Simulated assay, not measured.
Amino acid sequence: MKINAKSIFLFTLGLTYSALGFSQTNAPQGLDAQMNLNRLASGATSNVRVFDNRYEGVKGSPYFLESWAPGEIEIKANNTGKTEVIKDLKLKYDVFSNLLVAVIPQSKDTLQIGTQPVISFRLDVPTGDNKLEFRRIKEARELDPALSDAFFAVLYDSQNGKATVLKRIAKKKIEANFKGPYSAGQNYDEIVDETSYYVVANGKMKKVKLNRKSLLEAFPEKADQIKSFISSQKLAMSSEADLIKAVTYYQSL
């Protein structure tokens, strides 16, 4: 299938998700990156359709970031058991539909890619010093099967693998409700944010809130030490930064 710069395609690739246990090849760039993405398209002709402007007239944004962000995508490399990293892309993450929108470096084609073949992806966010990584988490299935294919933003990952702090950025759609002559409901569909936080430690994934009580309940075996640390550092535990500081202390114990 020929791809041109005026077309926007949706790739819903029916590839089975594999665990994050692949070895990584050298990262292809430039024309190599374009060829890799075009290869994805050529393998999914029967599943390609023109983008349908699904969000037209809907209030709110389906995207993690409204603007294009420099980024890269790690994908499965055919059936070789390896992965490829495609760099130098402009990306948007459609959180609501769990899709990536990518601009191919050389041709400037704009593509929407289903996330089934995607292992992870990274975005340069305006507020961060490093790329923000999104990846699937193997422990999520045990916590909630509905999270098996979800992507989580990695806020902190200890070098020894003892603890990881994750952010689940989700979107939900509130349907318009204007039935009946006296209805006071909203007269438009709206997409709103739903953000939640998780900690993975000792092979278990736990949902936490941005408060002290929730974190102490997540680590009952170290609750007294963490509580003392929070007090000594005067942490309000109402921000991501405080959560990361507390979990960083936990993994050092």
Score class of each variant (00 low, 15 high):
75 I>N: 02
1 M>W: 06
52 D>H: 11
115 T>C: 06
168 R>F: 07
214 S>F: 03
248 T>K: 14
57 G>H: 10
210 L>Y: 04
196 S>N: 09
120 S>F: 03
189 D>S: 01
4 N>K: 03
187 N>P: 09
134 F>I: 07
186 Q>W: 01
62 P>W: 07
106 Q>P: 03
240 E>K: 05
185 G>C: 01
86 I>M: 06
77 A>D: 14
252 S>F: 02
125 V>L: 15
201 A>G: 00
152 F>H: 04
168 R>C: 02
235 L>Q: 05
183 S>M: 03
132 L>N: 08
208 V>C: 00
143 L>N: 09
101 V>L: 14
179 K>E: 08
173 K>S: 03
244 I>M: 12
49 R>V: 10
92 K>D: 04
239 S>P: 00
158 S>W: 07
22 F>V: 06
190 E>T: 05
242 D>H: 08
169 I>T: 02
30 G>S: 12
40 L>V: 13
86 I>D: 01
14 G>F: 13
55 Y>Q: 11
57 G>W: 13
177 N>Q: 10
11 F>T: 13
193 D>Y: 10
217 E>S: 10
221 E>Q: 12
39 R>H: 12
167 K>T: 03
50 V>R: 15
33 A>H: 14
136 R>K: 14
214 S>M: 03
220 P>T: 11
156 Y>N: 10
99 L>N: 11
23 S>H: 10
107 S>A: 08
87 K>G: 07
171 K>C: 00
211 N>L: 07
183 S>G: 02
231 S>D: 14
147 L>A: 01
83 T>A: 09
74 E>A: 04
128 G>H: 14
222 K>N: 15
167 K>G: 01
56 E>S: 15
95 V>R: 09
62 P>K: 06
76 K>Q: 09
134 F>E: 02
170 A>W: 07
128 G>L: 11
42 S>F: 10
149 D>M: 08
189 D>I: 03
51 F>H: 14
59 K>P: 08
48 V>D: 00
39 R>L: 13
74 E>Q: 06
175 E>F: 13
138 K>P: 02
25 T>Y: 04
180 G>S: 04
3 I>Y: 06
46 S>G: 14
221 E>R: 08
76 K>E: 10
238 S>F: 03
241 A>T: 13
38 N>R: 13
133 E>F: 05
225 Q>A: 09
207 K>G: 07
233 Q>D: 12
137 I>E: 02
233 Q>W: 08
186 Q>S: 12
164 T>D: 01
178 F>G: 04
220 P>H: 02
213 K>T: 11
205 M>Q: 08
55 Y>H: 14
15 L>Q: 12
101 V>W: 15
163 A>C: 05
126 P>S: 09
88 D>E: 12
107 S>D: 11
130 N>A: 13
55 Y>I: 15
60 G>N: 14
59 K>N: 15
101 V>G: 05
91 L>D: 06
11 F>A: 14
